[in-house]
Simulated assay, not measured.
Amino acid sequence: MQLLDLTLPSPEENLALDEALLSAAESGDQPVEVLRVWEPVDPLVVIGRASRLHEEVNVEVCQQRRIPFLRRASGGASVVTGCGCLMYAVVLSYQLHPELAALDVCHQYVMGRLQKSLAREVPEIDFQGTCDLTLDGRKFSGNSLRCKRTHLIYHGTLLYDFDLTLIPELLRTPPRMPDYRQQRPHESFVTNVPIPRDIIRQRLLEAWETSGEMVDWPRDLTAQLVAEKYTNPEWTSMR
């Protein structure tokens, strides 16, 4: 698996790059697997592909604070990210892992690897809900995926030193909650995992057994997606 440790200048570019990595893998005639690691500099709200913007996001607060909100290409609910939240994305091939066509197996495969690797630092880390990593019942990693014909992308957040007060300020109470949340508000549901960023990054690389860096990442496709989708207000506000 190749490693792409790359944070692009704008939030639109960073979301577009994840989608471009999946599309580029789909367009090739050989299986491609990539681990990307990145981290936003400033706060950013990212909503799921099927999310209803005004149902999940405090849009007015985001606008007042000039915090961007963008829609990603994968499912799941809205998240807040920024400095102190390490982001990862892993592109996986069905040819190499045909069992991942079953979604429950896919969640177990990816989350199991992450949990096992990070638990070397904090043994109490648990895997709860569909695809959350938790510590003492509080979530520090939310994840989502998008499946295509030959590849999938699985990506998510890893809160380690994030300003957690931003989450209830920028997000509404989610319309759907996992049972283990027990209707808790954001303030008592989300936490930072006490692992330094460099150690989290190293554990990610070990979990996915990366070998060599990706140099020829899909620059042109990323730019095209930014121009056609991620800077298009209709894409973000379509629901």
Rank of each mutant, 00 (worst) to 15 (best):
L204M: 11
R239L: 09
P168N: 04
V46R: 03
G112T: 08
Q30N: 11
R138H: 09
R203E: 03
P174Y: 08
A207I: 01
C147I: 12
D42F: 12
T130E: 12
R36P: 11
L100C: 12
P9I: 08
G142E: 00
S141C: 03
R120D: 13
A16N: 01
Q64P: 12
E39M: 13
A227S: 11
A24I: 02
Q202I: 04
D126G: 09
E13K: 15
D220V: 10
L170G: 01
T210G: 05
L170E: 01
H186D: 06
L21S: 07
E206W: 10
Q183D: 11
A89N: 06
T157C: 00
D29K: 09
E124T: 15
R71N: 00
Q115I: 12
D5Q: 14
A73N: 07
S78H: 05
Y160K: 09
E55A: 14
V105D: 11
V57M: 06
E26T: 02
V226Q: 01
T81S: 14
M238N: 14
G84S: 14
G84I: 07
T134P: 02
H54E: 12
D42I: 09
S237V: 08
R201G: 08
W38S: 12
R52P: 05
G75C: 07
A50W: 13
Q30I: 11
Q30C: 06
V79Q: 02
A227N: 08
L70I: 08
P9F: 08
R36M: 12
C85D: 12
A24R: 02
L204Q: 04
P40W: 06
R149W: 05
V90C: 09
E169L: 13
E121P: 05
L225K: 03
A16E: 00
E60L: 08
P11T: 00
R49L: 15
L164Y: 05
L205R: 11
R146A: 10
G28Y: 03
G75F: 06
L3I: 12
F162E: 04
R181S: 04
P68I: 04
L92N: 01
V215F: 06
L21D: 08
A89S: 15
D220R: 09
R65A: 00
L92W: 03
T157Q: 00
E187A: 13
D216N: 10
V190T: 09
R197H: 10
A223V: 13
T222R: 04
V41M: 10
R49C: 14
S117T: 11
Q183S: 06
R49G: 10
P98C: 04
D216L: 05
L8H: 06
P9D: 10
C131H: 02
D216H: 10
Q108P: 00
E99H: 13
E124H: 11
D198E: 15
L158R: 04
E12A: 10
